[in-house]
Design a protein around this nucleic acid. Sequence first.
DNA 1: GTGTCGCCTTGATCCAGGTCAAGGCGGCTT
DNA 2: AAGCCGCCTTGACCTGGATCAAGGCGACAC
Lengths: 256, 256
Amino acid sequence: MQVKAACGFGMTKLTVEPRDCTACPIRHKAVCARCETDELEILEGIKTYRNYDAGETIVFSGDEMDFVASVVTGVAALSQGLEDGRTQMVGLLLPADFLGRPGRRTAAYDVVAVSPVTLCCFRRGPFEDLLRSTPHIGQRLLEMTLDELDAAREWMLILGRKTAREKIASLLSILARREASLCQATPMCEASFILPLTREAMADYLGLTLETVSRQISALKRDGVIRLKGTRGIEVPDFACLLAETGDDADGGPLI
Amino acid sequence: MQVKAACGFGMTKLTVEPRDCTACPIRHKAVCARCETDELEILEGIKTYRNYDAGETIVFSGDEMDFVASVVTGVAALSQGLEDGRTQMVGLLLPADFLGRPGRRTAAYDVVAVSPVTLCCFRRGPFEDLLRSTPHIGQRLLEMTLDELDAAREWMLILGRKTAREKIASLLSILARREASLCQATPMCEASFILPLTREAMADYLGLTLETVSRQISALKRDGVIRLKGTRGIEVPDFACLLAETGDDADGGPLI
DNA sequence: GTGTCGCCTTGATCCAGGTCAAGGCGGCTT
DNA sequence: AAGCCGCCTTGACCTGGATCAAGGCGACAC
């Protein structure tokens, strides 16, 4: 179920009419997960939906940011760059993830819609007031931030110490696991999913070039670790076999 | 001013008698920064000091962890490893930083004392109760976690996209900046400090080998960007010159 | 149909940083 | 003083992944 992608590009931030929070697909995983009915009502009062096309920049690093938001549908990437144009993805926001930092006025990263994205936005001021007055929101935000910090640290191990092949295997297993966690945990010895990222975005995530990504995917396919359905469809016949390629310690390893 | 390092190694977790929170050197930066006097009194009731020698492991990944803690003095490193022994540092804890995760029973990373370390430990159960009952602690912990997440993301850019020389320059400028922030912000065109890390720990931080670290430090010295006092003392004659070596975008760059 | 555009693959070559190896230096023990 | 040990430096060589370059393939417009 995809959000209709408006044609053209750039200025397509349609504001959608408010929808009912209780029917929201991310109700029990987002920052509002712990809210009681009365708290939800306050949130309903300050929320707005916005849509973005794939490839569209949601925020530019350094820009003033007057809102924070939950990702409702789609995928967005946080990126940082160097003087000469090299860039590194530093965050991947999936449905229910939180965008923005309470207490900060300007964006620290570029935020780009990787696929069509719908955000549930809250004006920053009122949201910060809520953070002070209703502990449920702050508690949930703390949990989510700690989870993100764990993910960032797993990612640092990938960036700093893994080979190209291990990096690709790690990314695929992360995406497969996340896919599984959405569709109710099947015990999972095999898996299949659609890559939400282009080769270039994968390279940006993993600190590689897109050529190396392409080569290593071909190598994993040649070695029977994965099968391809077209260019984006991934099938993993034996998940344990993919995990063995990640280089991770079997115990003490990724804990999610 | 260094904590007396107990001789030998291994089993030196002396418990020090409680000290007064109001005289604590990290009082206004740690997780208790926002606490009122009455809240401090509760904390005093559940705190214990522990000391560790340089090189000593504070916690092993996967171990049960019955406490959370603030670093009072010294430097500790969080590390993650792969099957074959490669390791990556994923966190560097300095005075006032927080160790442990409320709500998690087992440690997710190895924690090693890089220099002699003193921790102010709180038993996990009572601390979690406090987190629920006194919003000031949760609010401060959220702030600190968001700051750590920012640091982790800057670090990811370093790991993923920078050259060895840029990595070293980045680490030195981070350490110099932190040094300056402790000794009251001098506008800083020059700087000097003692490296709290061995070459190996620097390599572990930066995703390099210790040989490459050594070579790049020599190169920066040869090029006049830094001067060495012994093997650990670093002098930066012109801080802007060091910054130019980090590869960072002048604006939108590191915001601390 | 034909053209073009975005995305992906594959090949050939190069080089930054890893690996292996040999010391150097300062502090501590005996 | 002699020896050892932890930490650091430097050299020689090798290799994994970057870079440069040439297409392939499917979707969409005309």
